Simulated assay, not measured.
Amino acid sequence: MYYPYLRGRQFELIALREYAHQKGDNNKVIPIIEPVKSTFNSMKLAIPKLNSGNVRFALILNPQDGDCKNPEIILQNLSRELEDRSTWIPTFILTNNLKEVSELLTRYSFMEVMVICSDLVDTSTKEFNNLVLSASIKYIVTKENRTLKRALRGQNKNLIRLDDKFEAQSRNSDYLSIPEQKFTEEHTFFPEDGYNGFSDYTVIASEFKEGGSTPYAVAIHLTYQKDNNEIWIRHFTSESNFGRENIQGKFEEAARKAVIFINENNINTHAAKELIEYYNLQKYPGLGMVKKISIKHHLELINNIL
Rank of each mutant, 00 (worst) to 15 (best):
P35I: 14
G194D: 01
T188G: 01
L61R: 10
L275H: 03
E72Y: 11
K138N: 12
E83S: 15
T237F: 03
L75M: 14
L45C: 08
S124E: 15
G197Q: 06
E253I: 09
E103F: 10
Q22F: 12
S238P: 01
R85P: 00
G249S: 06
N246G: 03
N62L: 09
A219H: 02
K209C: 01
W88H: 10
E210R: 12
S294W: 04
H221S: 02
I220V: 09
N129Q: 14
E100N: 07
Q282C: 03
T91G: 07
V141W: 02
K37Y: 07
Y175D: 00
T87W: 01
R153C: 04
R171Y: 14
R234E: 01
A217L: 08
L94T: 09
V115D: 03
M111I: 15
F236N: 02
G24A: 08
L299V: 07
P63R: 12
D174H: 13
K209I: 10
F92I: 03
N54G: 07
I293Y: 01
F236H: 05
V29R: 11
I231P: 00
S42T: 10
R161C: 03
E253D: 01
E34V: 12
T123F: 05
T237H: 04
V29M: 09
V55C: 11
Y195T: 09
M289F: 13
I295P: 00
L94D: 00
N97K: 11
K143F: 08
V55L: 06
F110M: 07
V259M: 04
S294H: 04
Q225E: 13
E239V: 07
E127R: 11
A58F: 08
V203I: 15
I178M: 09
P63W: 14
C117W: 03
I47V: 12
L105G: 03
T125H: 14
V55Q: 07
L281H: 05
A58L: 09
R17A: 12
I116C: 03
L222H: 03
N241W: 06
N62P: 08
N70R: 10
S52K: 13
P4L: 06
K23Q: 06
G286Y: 09
L75D: 00
R153A: 11
L222Y: 06
